[in-house]
């Protein structure tokens, strides 16, 4: 009985922490999005300079700018990973809430289905090198 009580107490402590973590992931995503937008805005200004120099004939030929554009897409990959992490925490929180209320580990079939069908990896790439291209 004492064991069951301590498990419930542990769940009561973990649940709010997970919700805070989920909220912080949302904030991190917002900060990264803002930083990426600022960088892109700078790219726009750089492009403007090239256009002025090349009299409107600017094409992305500058290798450094191209590499920067490729690397900046880390923001999209990180954003997707954060969204996936946040969803996983949301599912775990739901299961814990249910367990703390009912004392049972089982949860609604909707969440069980969500957990089972959630991809193991939301983003497969491990670096920011440009990806494969396949024409059908």
């Amino acid at each position: 009985m004492e064991h069951a009580h301590s498990v419930t107490q542990a769940i009561a402590v973990i649940g709010p922490q997970l919700r805070i973590a989920q909220s912080e992931i949302g904030r991190m995503k917002g900060i990264i999005d803002t930083a990426a937008t600022e960088l892109l805005s700078s790219f726009g200004e750089i492009q403007g300079v090239f256009r002025a120099v090349d009299n409107g004939q600017f094409v992305i030929a500058d290798a450094a700018l191209s590499r920067a554009m490729t690397a900046l897409q880390f923001q999209d990959m990180v954003g997707q990973l954060m969204t996936g992490l946040s969803e996983r925490i949301g599912m775990a929180t739901h299961v814990l809430d249910h367990a703390s209320r009912t004392g049972e580990a089982s949860t609604t079939s909707e969440v069980t289905e969500q957990i089972h069908t959630f991809p193991r990896q939301v983003v497969l790439q491990h670096d920011v090198a440009s990806g494969d291209i396949e024409l059908f």
């Binding site: 990959m77 790439q125 059908f136």
Partner: peptide, 26 residues
């Protein structure tokens, strides 16, 4: 960012012309 063969096959079956994996090189 999806690069699995299964997803590519689904894209091809749907009528896509090609599959490009992010990050893209401009």
């Amino acid at each position: 960012t999806e690069s699995s063969d299964d997803m590519k096959a689904k894209g091809r079956a749907a009528g896509a012309t090609g599959w490009l994996v992010k990050p893209f090189d401009p």
